[in-house]
């Protein structure tokens, strides 16, 4: 360990003369702000214990993991599990489904929260605004299992949605939504909006509150209507928040919540519903094939990481807002 410290020290050693005073200054700095640093400790511990330490386990992707000989003593197998995944009959299908569902979420669900926030911002009646907000938050607090139970109930052939469509005359025969694969993505993304739109709009509402009111006053003086105000003041004011959230979302692009998928899918909708997450769940937890699923997970993380960096670069150049 001492070598480690020495290695890390060396690059910072560039200015030997100022080293001592620098160090003393930093020490003083730490003492002065000690309560802040103490508060930081749990956060650091959390990341070390629950985010960094488990990374060590990712090496089982290159091994035939056997829990009874431990991670280190399991046999090395190189890229066997990656090859198995790429050669799997379902590789392209789960990749396509993952990308499509993520893309639809990005296209439909992400702007929905912004639009809701903008609409709420224009509402004059505080009572009405609070009521709408409360109602739109509510689904977020319902357990996912219950939400999926409700979705299944609503979409039954004799459920509320079919009855509504029938009474309006849009369809003549009830549609059995849950066993027709062409409906799955619509149901998944649509119900996702219902679940999350209120909650995700909070952060945009907070950003809206931070826009300087004098800007609006000036715009009104200049004769701008509400539409123009939104276009020239509100949206640019929101832009940094939107870009940051977009980057974060894209960093999770390859992660589709498999729990909701497995609660809603069945063999007749695998075609459009089976994503990397649900595939990993079936192979890893149900069939106890840990090395294989670790390989799939690692593959997923690498893509996410690459996407995150690319989007961040683009954002820094084009929108002048970025994560780092």
């Amino acid at each position: 360990m001492s070598t480690n410290v020495a290695d890390k020290k060396n690059p910072g050693k560039a200015l030997p003369i100022s080293k001592r005073s620098n160090r003393r200054m930093m020490f003083r700095e730490i003492v002065k702000n000690r309560s802040l640093y103490i508060m930081l400790i749990p956060v650091i511990l959390y990341f070390v214990l629950f985010q960094y330490k488990p990374m060590y386990g990712a090496i089982i992707a290159f091994k035939d993991f056997n829990p009874f000989v431990g991670v280190w003593d399991s046999k090395w197998v190189g890229f066997k599990h990656f090859e198995q995944f790429f050669e799997s009959y379902y590789f392209w299908r789960i990749l396509r489904n993952t990308i499509l569902i993520s893309l639809y979420q990005l296209i439909f669900a992400f702007p929905a929260a912004i639009i809701l926030a903008l609409l709420l911002n224009e509402v004059r009646s505080m009572v009405f605004k609070k009521v709408v907000q409360s109602i739109s938050y509510l689904p977020h607090f319902i357990s996912l299992v219950v939400v999926c139970g409700m979705i299944i109930d609503f979409l039954q052939p004799d459920g509320i949605i079919n009855r509504m469509l029938l009474s309006v005359g849009l369809i003549e025969q009830p549609i059995n939504f849950l066993i027709q694969s062409q409906w799955f993505r619509t149901i998944f993304v649509g119900s996702g909006i219902w679940q999350g739109v209120g909650w995700s709009s909070i952060i945009f509402l907070a950003a809206l509150a931070g826009i300087n009111p004098s800007l609006y006053e000036a715009a009104v003086v200049d004769g701008a209507g509400r539409w123009k105000q939104m276009w020239h003041i509100t949206l640019p004011g929101l832009m940094p928040t939107i870009v940051i959230l977009l980057i974060i979302n894209i960093g999770n692009f390859m992660v589709v919540g498999f729990d909701k998928i497995i609660l809603l899918y069945n063999p007749s909708t695998y075609e459009t519903a089976d994503v990397i997450g649900s595939f990993v769940f079936r192979r890893g937890i149900v069939e106890a094939n840990y090395s294989f699923t670790a390989a799939v997970g690692l593959f997923n993380s690498v893509i996410n990481f690459a996407l995150l960096i690319i989007v961040n670069q683009i954002a820094r150049k084009k929108a002048e807002a970025s994560l780092w």
Binding site: M1, N4, V5, K8, I44, L45, V48, L49, Y52, K53, Y56
Partner: peptide, 13 residues
Amino acid sequence: ISLMFVMVITACS
């Protein structure tokens, strides 16, 4: 901070 990380990680492993 990164030194702290390294130390804790090596300790853990």
